[in-house]
């Protein structure tokens, strides 16, 4: 399913019936126990987190869940987190740090929720806090983009040691629709915007924003089995790295996004 225009990828990333985080979690981990709430305000249904085993290793899992049918989509707020979702994620990350559990994040959101309550409860601050805290979290973090990676709302679960992307996942500073309407005042220019923004998984690898692109071929079960092995191997490789070095390497990963990354074929 590779190839196609960037806009085709956008459509695939959002496609009805595309696997959501719950389906990955069920296959990659065992004994997943969901843990609810941010301990301040509410339990955000768009963010699902908990503890589980990854090939026998206890890990913390945090995901954005879009839901599958209309009813569950509404219940999950279409995967658009409110501040309490980010606060819950941060609570679970700190818990993971305390118990030296690695963290796996699944990213799938059109963006942080744009709402009155979200602003009243500090959406900007919630995201900012996650960015700052994730970069210095003393346990390994890997984020996997399974569908849409919408702007700061996605980044708030992706300040990680590695970012992996499904072949048809996207990651963008703004939706192509938003870009077309703000920049060109023309909603018909969505396809051109998708092209110009460089938002495909393949672009992310070229720009060194993603370390790995996971092919979407063969059976979903087999793909998840491979992901489980790869995740386990990536965490095993970091087991003996001193905490301060782990943080230094993570900071350097983001530090490099200056003007020096210029892929030749752009």
């Amino acid at each position: 399913m590779s190839g196609g225009t960037p806009y085709d990828k956008v459509m695939l990333a959002r496609a009805k019936g595309r696997a959501t985080a719950a389906e990955y979690i069920n296959r990659i981990f065992t004994d997943f126990i969901e843990l609810h709430g941010d301990r301040h305000f509410a339990d955000d249904k768009a963010v699902v987190g908990g503890v589980a085993y990854l090939a026998g290793m206890p890990v913390t899992v945090i995901s954005m869940e879009k839901g599958k049918d209309t009813k569950s989509k509404v219940y999950r707020n279409f995967g658009a987190p409110n501040p309490e979702g980010y606060n819950k994620a941060l609570r679970l990350m700190r818990q993971a740090e305390k118990f030296s559990r690695p963290v796996v994040c699944f990213v799938d959101t059109a963006g942080a929720f744009c709402g009155l309550g979200a602003e009243e409860r500090g959406q900007g601050r919630a995201i900012a806090q996650n960015l700052a805290e994730m970069i210095t979290l003393k346990t390994p973090i890997i984020s996997i983009f399974i569908g849409e990676g919408g702007s700061g709302g996605a980044l708030a679960l992706a300040c990680s040691d590695e970012v992996w992307m499904m072949e048809n996942a996207i990651y963008s500073v703004i939706s192509p629709e938003g870009c077309a309407s703000i920049l060109w005042k023309d909603s018909k220019k969505v396809k051109a915007a998708a092209q110009s923004l460089r938002l495909t998984a393949q672009d992310m690898q070229k720009l060194q924003v993603a370390e790995k692109v996971i092919p979407e071929k063969g059976s979903f079960d087999a793909c998840c089995r491979t992901m489980a092995q790869d995740l386990r191997a990536a965490f095993d490789a970091r087991r003996d790295i001193p905490k301060d070095e782990l943080i230094k390497t993570r900071y350097e990963r983001f530090r490099k996004y200056g003007a020096q990354i210029v892929p030749e074929d752009f």
Partner: peptide, 10 residues
């Protein structure tokens, strides 16, 4: 593009 988003993390 995405590199501007990365500035938030950096």
């Amino acid at each position: 593009g995405i590199l501007s988003l990365m500035q938030m993390a950096k």
